[in-house]
Design a protein around this nucleic acid. Structure first.
Length: 178
DNA sequence: GCCAACGTTGGC
DNA sequence: GCCAACGTTGGC
């Protein structure tokens, strides 16, 4: 069930549907954002094994999705933010589940966080492998125009860089991209 | 624990 | 470049 409200970190209960136990073999869906100027879907396709660490996320709600929500084989939309147009452009899959984000321990990394300890890490990442470009990018205004996507977390919480997607939303968007 | 100030994200 | 949204910080 999608969230009733766009509440962010607030009560843990808001995100119960995301962390609820899965039925056997159940696959779930997600969306990650990246500014194409920084790291684009093309960059992911060009990466070794078409895989990258999805690190540097410094928001607790997003961290919880990375650490506890995303499981091997889950599928993930790749969204270009701050782009012209901002759009969902490709799909990837989770190839490694949540593990500590080492960039938080590196003084020279822009995402260094002195509060995060190696034996009790604050921040987590997953590994994502590109599957494919969408046949057609689906731009933000198109998403907003669809009634059945009104509850989509991407549209509700603008600042969240990792967000859940329901199976119905996934299906609708894949159909839009044809 | 409240809330104002501040910083960041990201659409436009 | 502006600004709305909202998460985070810190004073009290």
């Amino acid at each position: 069930m999608p969230p009733r409200r766009a509440a962010g970190g607030g009560g843990a209960g808001t995100w119960e549907w995301v962390f609820a136990p899965r039925s056997r073999g159940e696959r779930r869906y997600w969306l990650v954002k990246s500014e194409p100027e920084v790291f684009s879907f093309e960059d992911l396709l060009a990466a070794p094994e078409r895989t990258t660490h999805w690190d540097g996320v410094r928001n607790y709600t997003a961290r919880n999705f990375l650490r506890d929500g995303m499981k091997l084989g889950d599928e993930v939309f790749f969204y270009h933010s701050n782009a012209a147009p901002s759009a969902i452009v490709g799909t990837c899959e989770v190839v490694r589940e949540g593990c500590p984000d080492n960039t938080a321990f590196d003084r020279d990394d822009p995402h260094f966080d002195p509060e995060s300890e190696r034996d009790d890490p604050t921040w987590y990442m997953v590994d994502l492998r590109a599957i494919d470009r969408l046949p057609r990018a689906v731009a933000l205004p198109e998403l907003k125009a669809r009634k059945e996507l009104a509850d989509m977390t991407l549209l509700r919480i603008g600042r969240l860089s990792v967000s859940p997607v329901t199976a119905a939303q996934w299906k609708a968007i894949v159909a839009m991209a044809k």
